[in-house]
Design a protein around this nucleic acid. Structure first.
Length: 165
DNA sequence: CCCTGATTCGC
DNA sequence: GCGAATCAGG
């Protein structure tokens, strides 16, 4: 399909409106996003109105802090949602560190990260999941009823104080 | 893996 | 001029 005058106009319009090359290609048909990009360059209009202002990192942090709920609200009422999976016992004498833990081992942190004996749960997680069955139910709590959501606006933070062993 | 635009180069 | 292939980045 050729770049007729009409199609070029359409391209200019869509591009200036901020559509991506693939979006334009899909909308106009008969061309790939590569064709669109190529044409855009040949037309010399590669520069576009900035869709998003470049935020500084410190700005983002400030916004995140301002938006975040207080600590008490972010904590989930873990105990009330626990089902019947028991914590699994000691996994041995080896302490799993950040570098020694495997991909299929539970990454639930145990202890004080600043402390020497800080380690991870290490139970089998499986399926590329981050936690074992027990800790998964602590970390990923279902957001079901509206009333339940009132009590908790965000998922629980994995922050156990004491070792589970 | 999904996506983005940028560039190269044979056609 | 065109655009597929490729690259670099998110």
């Amino acid at each position: 399909m050729a770049w007729t005058e009409e199609r070029v106009e359409e391209l200019k319009k869509l591009w200036s409106e901020g559509h991506s090359a693939s979006q334009i290609a899909a909308r106009m048909g008969g061309v790939t996003r590569n064709a669109v990009i190529g044409k855009v360059h040949r037309l010399g209009l590669s520069g576009r109105a900035a869709p998003a202002k470049p935020k500084t990192v410190t700005t983002e942090v400030r916004e995140a802090v301002a938006t975040a709920a207080p600590e008490r609200e972010r904590r989930a009422p873990v105990r009330s949602v626990l089902r019947d999976l028991p914590p699994i016992g000691d996994f041995g004498s080896d302490r799993l560190t950040v570098s020694s833990i495997g991909t299929d081992q539970c990454k639930w942190p145990i202890g004080d990260p600043a402390s020497e004996d800080f380690h991870f749960c290490g139970q089998s997680a499986g399926g590329g999941k981050p936690y074992c069955a027990y800790h998964a139910q602590l970390a990923f709590q279902p957001s079901t009823s509206r009333s339940a959501r009132k009590e908790r606006t965000a998922p629980a933070l994995p922050r156990p104080i004491r070792a589970v062993s």
